[in-house]
């Protein structure tokens, strides 16, 4: 546990913590602009979170300790994956623990806890949201696991740092069909996991069409703030991983302070670019019917399988 490792881990947490609401604000702004409206300020998500932390927290009389614990588990599992993954540097604190398989299952803790949160207060909409989210998780999880294998085949390692470093050093890996297929599968899964269009509409006000929002209908105040914050953080984290896998250049691999700074700035630029693209993409999309989502995820699964096969064969 070096000083460098500890400081960079903290930096990674801070980076994602600050970028997450900002990116959401940017997405809202880009979407609004695309719809020819002015849209909320870029810092709107910060204002919303600040307000929620200041508000009273309501708790249902049917709820259990899960109600308070689930948001905390969600956010701390997110923080743990941020600590173990290479986001701005490949030389992080728990170097060996940044295993893709482990990351998938630590993220699953968050999904499970939030699904339990939905069922905790004995409401109809909460159960509905949990049921739908669990359905989507059960189908996106396999695609994610197989694309983990596909992404790891070339580097012969499931350790994320090793894969990212391998991609930095072997540019040809990035353009191999296996890598491109795996990244596209990963992107679909990210859209599903983060509840973005076309899987779920984060701006919906109609309970019957909600998936992820429906689970947190019962949360308020700081619980809601924690859940919202950690969902933004999960999305940002997944985007960081995708961008580091797809275009890793700029990530610090030398363990020097200057490079860390450069890597932060470059990653921020990359993320803003990706988020802008996603926002533009989302304005052209309508939400899929729930029973069309499995087709999308099955597509991702097939892409991941194809990626693995081409990784083995080539």
């Amino acid at each position: 546990m070096s000083l460098f490792g500890s400081v960079t881990s903290l930096l990674q947490i801070l980076f994602v913590l600050l970028m997450a609401p900002l990116l959401n604000g940017i997405m809202l702004k880009v979407k609004s602009r695309a719809e020819r409206r002015v849209g909320p300020p870029i810092l709107q998500t910060f204002y919303d979170l600040r307000k929620l932390f200041k508000k009273e927290t309501l708790r249902s009389n049917n709820s259990t300790f899960i109600f308070t614990l689930a948001p905390l588990i969600l956010i701390s599992s997110t923080v743990v994956v941020i600590v173990v993954s290479p986001i701005i540097t490949t030389g992080e604190l728990f170097n060996g623990s940044g295993d893709l398989f482990a990351i998938v299952f630590i993220l699953l803790i968050g999904s499970m806890s939030i699904a339990l949160l939905g069922l905790d207060a004995a409401t109809a909409f909460g159960g509905m949201g949990s049921s739908r989210a669990a359905t989507i998780t059960s189908l996106s999880e396999p695609a994610l696991l197989v694309s983990v294998i596909a992404l790891s085949v070339q580097a012969k390692s499931t350790n994320l740092s090793v894969i990212v470093l391998g991609n930095v050093h072997h540019v040809s890996w990035l353009l191999s069909p296996s890598h491109i297929l795996a990244i596209s599968a990963l992107l679909i899964v990210i859209f599903a996991e983060a509840g973005r269009l076309p899987v779920d509409n984060p701006a919906t006000h109609l309970e019957l069409t909600m998936i992820y929002e429906a689970m947190i209908l019962e949360s308020s105040g700081e619980n809601l703030a924690l859940v919202k914050l950690s969902e933004f953080m999960r999305f940002t984290f997944l985007l960081c991983i995708a961008s580091n896998l797809f275009f890793p250049f700029g990530i610090d691999s030398t363990k020097s302070w200057i490079f860390i700074g450069i890597s932060c700035i470059l990653l921020a630029i990359k993320l803003i670019f990706i988020v802008g693209l996603i926002a533009l993409f989302e304005t052209t999309q309508a939400k899929l019917r729930l029973f069309r989502v499995p087709e999308l995820l099955a597509g991702a699964f097939v892409l991941a399988i194809l990626a693995t096969i081409s990784g083995i064969v080539v």
């Binding site: 200041k54 927290t57 309501l58 004995a122």
Partner: peptide, 17 residues
Amino acid sequence: ISKLFSLRKLRIVDSWG
């Protein structure tokens, strides 16, 4: 941290139906 910043208020209510 969230307790430090929040109003530390908790109200028990019925589930929202």
